[in-house]
Design a protein around this nucleic acid. Structure first.
Lengths: 211, 211
DNA sequence: AAAATAACGTGATTATTTTCACGAATATTT
DNA sequence: AAATATTCGTGAAAATAATCACGTTATTTT
């Protein structure tokens, strides 16, 4: 009999970060039915104990001698991250980065649908990005209401990022996924997730230094 | 007199992650000359003590009553991350994402130069991405040698990611910046930094769930 | 059907990281 | 020039997280 029907304890931050990695890994492991903590650990360069302990924070049970049932694991993680809820997002900025995101196939698996992509460059408005037609910024208000959009993605140039953030918040956006290096100023209650692209390569540069 | 002329202690991982944030923040704070730990802390939602303690791991000294000299701070962080060394990188995959990276202006500041961008789609080969002409994969070997490239960026589709990784490693690449969700298998000694795009939005989704 | 095996689950221990508290230092004010 | 205010620097204490060690359980083998 499984015991943890209550989840009283707050999940440690490092655990949270790893849960995201387990989730990503499972989306790649579709061929097998079961996976052991040791196998997961090896692929992610951590210890099996850590994997098992992390899973205790969710309602995840493995089978001794066998490992964890992949579909169940995936379901539990998916539930934790809310990926079974469909969220419409909008992308502001139809440059290469915005376009890349608009076309990204992986969103579907995690319950994300790109409702629209916006730009204020007349040359881009009306052009196709995947299956979406680029809309003018003036349409933002309508689209947010129509599709109940809560998440906005900022892919504009650095100097208009703050302005766009304010526009989104005015129109009811609750979370911003910020692809610019700008430190956005937002009122309390608004979630901002910075996707600073330079971060990844700084790690590489530092690791290379050491040798 | 400053005391820490030796850096014997390993930098804690959480500190390392924050150092990247300080570095990114400073690239935005060009107008002032000094900044206090409190100001940094507020912008990054951490405590001033933590900022000060983090700085003790580098040769960083602030002035009481004034704060930290921004150019010195930046120099020290830059040295730590090796951003004053120019590294040539190559990008494999000239889709929207590869193109976005190839055009990204922020690399210059952190000592990164995009030496070339590759694709094997005949339609793309020869076309311009910013100031670069897209090269065929067959040119990879030559370019890596010519520009002493150590870092390769993978922006191809999921199903060819592993193959491209192997090709790069065969030709002497030491670090891979992987923009696909694939868990790349690489020999020891090769640095792999995964830039999983879904990670950011999973955090957002989970935070939104809670309300 | 009993024994052996392989993997899970977890309390206890150890290690790491953050926070606290306060002394030291340097501008600024009186 | 002394007093005051502010901010840094840092050991010590507290909080958090990772590892260890071993009991438990389900499968496989004999």
């Amino acid at each position: 009999m499984s015991k943890n029907n209550n989840k009283p304890i707050e999940i440690p931050k490092p655990t949270f970060e790893r849960l995201k990695k387990y989730h990503a890994l499972l989306l790649q492991e579709k061929d097998k039915e079961y996976i052991s903590s040791e196998e997961i650990a090896e692929k992610l360069n951590i210890t099996p104990e850590q994997v098992r302990k992390d899973f205790t924070y969710l309602n995840i049970n493995g089978k001794p001698k066998i490992g964890y049932h992949i579909p169940s694991l995936e379901k539990e993680l998916s539930e934790f991250f809310g990926t079974w809820i469909l969220d419409n997002i909008i992308i502001i900025g139809a440059g290469n980065l915005g376009s890349a995101l608009a076309k990204y196939k992986g969103f579907k698996k995690i319950g994300i649908r790109v409702a629209a992509i916006f730009d204020n460059d007349p040359e881009k408005i009306g052009s196709l990005v995947g299956e979406l037609s680029v809309l003018p910024l003036a349409e933002i208000k309508r689209v947010i209401k129509r599709f109940k959009v809560k998440i906005g993605v900022i892919c504009v140039s650095e100097n208009s990022a703050q302005e766009i953030a304010e526009l989104l918040i005015q129109n009811g956006i609750k979370a911003i996924w910020n692809f610019t290096p700008v430190n956005l100023q937002t009122p309390p209650g608004i979630i901002v997730e910075n996707q600073d692209i330079t971060t990844g390569i700084l790690t590489i540069k530092h690791l290379m230094e050491k040798e």
